[in-house]
Design a protein around this nucleic acid. Structure first.
Lengths: 215, 215
DNA sequence: TAGACTATTTAGGATATCCTAAACTTTATA
DNA sequence: TATAAAGTTTAGGATATCCTAAATAGTCTA
C-alpha cells in the first residue's frame, strides 16, 4: 500500500508521462525536491509494488495499476481544491496547498460526496466517482416541485460559489430529505421542511438545488 | 514542529491527563498501540520540544504549549467530524475515522470556516476558532466528580467511536442523571448509580463523559 | 569511435519511528 | 521491610526515506 509519500511520486510520474514519454530520474527529482539518488531508490520500491515499469538508466512509465492509483489521487486533489474554494471560500493558492495534503487522506466516499456538492463535474473520467460524477444528474430543481412533494437532494448546480455556500450553510446538501410545504406569492420564496424546521428559499436559490422526488 | 505522529501522542496525553493525574507510559502505549519502549523514546522527543514535562518513571504532563497544541488538534478533529456528518452526510463511524486523519492536516483557516458552516459549535473554548465558535458545552468529566455528586450527562467527547458506542450502549447518553457512588482503588473503575442500577466505569471511559453537576 | 560531459546508480550514512529483550525502579505483598 | 510483581527504561536492531560522494552508463562531439 502506497504511503502518502509514494503517492506523491506517482503523481509526478503521471504528470511527466502524460505526453507518453517516460519520466527521467532527474526530472522526478526536480519535481519532488529530492536528490536523484533518492528517486532511484524509490523507483525500485514502486517497481516492486507493480506501480511502475522501471529499467535502469532508461526512465519509468506507470503500469495500469499505477495510472489508476495516480489518477485517483489527482482527482481527489481536484475535488478537494474546488470544494475548499467553492464551499469554504478559500482562495486558490491556499486551497491548492491544502488539497495537496487532503488528496492523500480523503476517502473515496467523502470525495464523491464533495463532488456531488460542487458538482463541477469538470473532470471527465473521474477515477473516484466513476461515471457517477461525470454526468447524469437526476432530479428536478426545487422550484419545480409542487406542494407536498418529498424529495431527496441529489446535487447542487455549481455556477455561483457564493450561493452554493449559502445553501450548504443552511443545510441544503446532497442526501438530505426535504418536502415542499407551500409556495407564497407567485415569485416569492418557497417554504421547505427539512428535519425539524421550515426554511424559506428564493426561487432563484431553489433553482440551484436538484432533488430526486420520492413521493 | 510536531509531525502527525507526535500530534497523536499529544492527543492521548491530553486525554489521560485531563483528570489532572499525570499520564503513565503504559497507558499511552495502550492508547497508541505501540510498545512501552517506543513511548519512552517519544516522550524524550516531546520533552525536548517543550511540549511535555517528563520525569523518568514518574509519568508526564503537558506544558502550556503542549496543551494548546493538543487542544487545537482535538478541536480540529471535532470540527472535521461534525462537518463530515453534517455537510457530507457521512455516518459517525466513518466520519470519526476520517477526522483522525484530517485533524493533522486541516489548516486553522479551513477549520474556522467549517466551523462557521456547521455552527453547531459544540465545543467551548475552541483553540482553533477562538471565541468565534463558542457555543459552550458545560460539564465536567465523570472521572473528576467526587463521591456523592449528582449530575446530568451533557455530552460525550467524541474521541473514539468504539468507546462512545459502548458508553451509549450501557446507558451513558446525554440527559441521563447519574451519581458517583464510590471510587475503588486509586486508578480502578468508578461506580456510578444510574436509575436502579450501579455501573462501573474505567477512568479512561469516564473521562469521555461530561456531566453538569447538580448537587 | 574515443573522450568528455551528463545522467544515473551504488555505497555508506543520517533520522524518525517502531520493536524485543534485558536491565532497572517502583509498588505491592507477605 | 524484604521480595516478588509490575511498570519503565536502555540496548541493540529494523524499516522507510533522505542525503552526499563515488562509481558507472549513456550520449554527444570532434
Amino acid at each position: 500500500m502506497a504511503t502518502g509519500n509514494r503517492e506523491d511520486y506517482l503523481l509526478r510520474i503521471l504528470r511527466l508521462t502524460e505526453g507518453e514519454n517516460s519520466a527521467k530520474t532527474t526530472d522526478i527529482a526536480a519535481l519532488m525536491n529530492v536528490s536523484a539518488a533518492s528517486v532511484t531508490e524509490m523507483l525500485r520500491v514502486l517497481s516492486d509494488e507493480g506501480l511502475i515499469v522501471y529499467r535502469k538508466y532508461r526512465g519509468v512509465r506507470l503500469t495500469e495499476k499505477g495510472i489508476a492509483q495516480a489518477k485517483r489521487i489527482r482527482d481527489k486533489h481536484q475535488i478537494a481544491e474546488r470544494f475548499l474554494m467553492d464551499v469554504l471560500d478559500k482562495e486558490q493558492g491556499e486551497a491548492h496547498e491544502e488539497a495537496c495534503k487532503m488528496e492523500h487522506i480523503l476517502s473515496d466516499e467523502s470525495a464523491r460526496r464533495m463532488c456531488r456538492i460542487i458538482s463541477s463535474a469538470e473532470m471527465s473520467d473521474c477515477e473516484v466517482c466513476g461515471t457517477e460524477c461525470v454526468k447524469k444528474r437526476s432530479g428536478i430543481q426545487l422550484n419545480r416541485m409542487s406542494t407536498g412533494m418529498i424529495g431527496k437532494i441529489s446535487h447542487l448546480r455549481c455556477d455561483d460559489a457564493e450561493k452554493i455556500r449559502k445553501l450548504v450553510a443552511i443545510g441544503f446538501v446532497p442526501g438530505r430529505t426535504i418536502s415542499l410545504v407551500n409556495r407564497t406569492t407567485n415569485n416569492g420564496p418557497i417554504i421547505f421542511r427539512m428535519g425539524e424546521s421550515n426554511i424559506a428559499l428564493d426561487q432563484d436559490m431553489a433553482s440551484l438545488v436538484f432533488a430526486d422526488v420520492e413521493l
